[in-house]
């Protein structure tokens, strides 16, 4: 539904703005590889897609490699351990995000050739030690009843930094 209504200044009554809303309903259709990936999450598995002819494993999986444009094959397990390639500690409440502070990490799962985003839990970083997260080992930890959604897992460090 798209709506437009005129607005008036509360004091003077002058017309000085128009309010509008723009809703475009979207139904995003996941790729075949992603559907299979979400199925794997329900089984507490992390899966990646191997790119034909290159040996490269992509997480999250895609039906084709965005870099080489080659198709990908049947999904293969990766992780659940991985290495943190970079991170940030979010201190602002962004739309749909969790309450801050929360640590967002990009983790290269063991066996994968890409890094994937996720939240790091269970670690209290001391100020001044933040950068020790880069290169740290971690593993994916699942909720008790995964729904087949990227929010089914988070990361925890294998050892404290």
């Amino acid at each position: 539904m798209n709506k437009t209504t005129a607005g008036h200044d509360a004091e003077s009554g002058d017309f000085n703005f128009v309010e509008g809303e723009w809703e475009v309903h979207q139904r995003y259709v996941p790729s075949r590889a992603l559907v299979e990936f979400f199925g794997g999450l329900k089984r507490k598995e992390i899966l990646g897609s191997p790119v034909e002819g290159t040996g490269r494993i992509i997480v999250p999986p895609q039906d084709f490699c965005e870099l080489s444009y080659r198709p990908t094959g049947p999904l293969v397990p990766v992780g659940p351990g991985g290495t943190i390639r970079s991170f940030t500690i979010v201190h602002s409440r962004f739309a749909n995000g969790p309450p801050p502070p929360v640590t967002m990490v990009f983790v290269q799962f063991d066996g994968a050739d890409t890094a994937s985003p996720g939240y790091l839990q269970g670690t209290a970083l001391q100020p001044g030690t933040e950068l020790e997260l880069i290169g740290a080992r971690c593993r994916a930890v699942f909720v008790d009843a995964p729904q087949g959604d990227w929010r089914d897992f988070w990361f925890e460090l294998e050892t404290e930094v």
């Binding site: 996941p30 962004f94 967002m104 985003p117 996720g118 959604d149 990227w150």
Partner: peptide, 11 residues
């Protein structure tokens, strides 16, 4: 990406 980057909010 609607499947992965909205669940972990990247901006």
């Amino acid at each position: 990406d609607p499947f992965t980057e909205r669940q972990v909010v990247r901006n």
